[in-house]
């Protein structure tokens, strides 16, 4: 744990080092020799540091470092046609404390459902999900969701929405307001404090939803395509802000997205899912140095390689997966 944390940001550290042997194998596949040779020195050290022998003792010494454990979870929905619809099938996943994990997959593969299970909003049909070693029984302020549908409180202003969580936790009004105003400023909505949600655009609502959840400091952020409705510029800005917050507070983040770039840019680990039934296809460790700077990363061949390889994997599954 210690070693991993200290190492973050420097280049020779292992990132997201549970799931050791699988990720080791994957990485070898994802970063072929020619790239390793032609890459920067960082690239070479990262790769060489990822041998499974090196990593394994760290996680086994500290099994508590998995803040979220999902064990063989399946979710079956009864559809209106009275047929069973398997939304999630046999999902197992360990998410390390303070890790940034993205879930990537086609529409309808169960990403939101998985997030709801971790949030405690939905209980799985079978299997178990745990947070900090405790079975998840329901929602709690330790896990803060940012929903795809925003779900803002329409009768509250922007400020009222953001202050809601802190006030609920007994923080004094003046203090909660000061914190909330700072957060609203951070998400770029200064001047909109007294607007009602109906007076905001989709992208603005999404930013309020993000601020509202950050305001009560959950240990785990559950973000469901939080930047989906944003223009490219705001999206980039908020990605950077999110990374800054994360690098400062080191929350655990479970981040659902459609965008491969976004997943690679933000994450320690990308969970690739496939559809019908929703399964985990692959878990890929993203070994890119932190803090990540967008302009540097876009030029980094290792980053490009991750993006291209992940996109290719999806294309392959599309070709193979479409029933005739």
């Amino acid at each position: 744990m210690k070693a991993r944390q200290n190492g973050r940001g420097s280049n020779d550290a292992p990132h997201g080092c549970e799931n050791e042997s699988l990720s080791g194998r994957l990485l070898a596949r994802l970063v072929p020799l020619n790239l390793r040779a032609s890459g920067t020195e960082d690239g070479m050290t990262v790769v060489s540091a990822r041998s499974s022998e090196w990593v394994r003792p760290v996680t086994q010494q500290d099994p508590a470092s998995a803040i979220i454990e999902i064990d063989r979870v399946s979710q079956v929905f009864q559809t209106s046609a009275r047929k069973d619809h398997v939304a999630l099938s046999d999902i197992s996943l360990r998410i390390e404390e303070r890790a940034f994990v993205s879930i990537l997959g086609p529409s309808g593969c169960g990403k939101s459902t998985l997030l709801y299970i971790v949030g405690g909003f939905v209980s799985p049909t079978s299997g178990a999900a745990k947070v900090k070693g405790q079975a998840i029984k329901g929602p709690g302020p330790d896990r803060g969701p940012v929903f795809q549908e925003f779900a803002l409180f329409p009768w509250k202003t922007v400020l009222g929405n953001v202050m809601y969580g802190p006030r609920q936790q007994g923080i004094r009004a003046a203090e909660a307001e000061a914190q909330s105003r700072a957060l609203i400023d951070m998400v770029g909505l200064k001047g909109y404090e007294n607007f009602y949600p109906k007076e905001l655009s989709g992208g603005m609502k999404q930013r309020v939803a993000l601020a509202r959840t950050l305001a009560y400091h959950p240990e785990v952020l559950l973000m469901d395509e939080p930047f989906g409705a944003l223009d490219a510029h705001t999206r980039t800005r908020l990605q950077n802000d999110l990374l800054n917050i994360w690098e400062r507070d080191r929350k655990t983040v479970l981040f659902v997205t459609h965008s491969v770039d976004e997943a690679v840019f933000l994450s320690d680990k990308v969970v690739m899912m496939s559809k019908s039934p929703g399964r985990i296809r692959q878990v890929i460790d993203i070994d890119l140095p932190r803090p990540r700077r967008r302009n540097e990363l876009l030029l980094d061949p290792r980053y490009q390689k991750y993006v291209v390889d992940i996109e290719r994997m999806f294309d392959e599954s599309d070709e193979g997966g479409v029933p005739a």
Binding site: P139, G140, R143, G144, F147, Y164, Q169, R212, P218
Partner: peptide, 14 residues
């Protein structure tokens, strides 16, 4: 009432 609104409240500890 939108379910996610209630979920948001539940996550805040209501």
């Amino acid at each position: 009432v939108e379910e996610k609104m209630l979920w948001s409240g539940a996550a805040m500890g209501l």
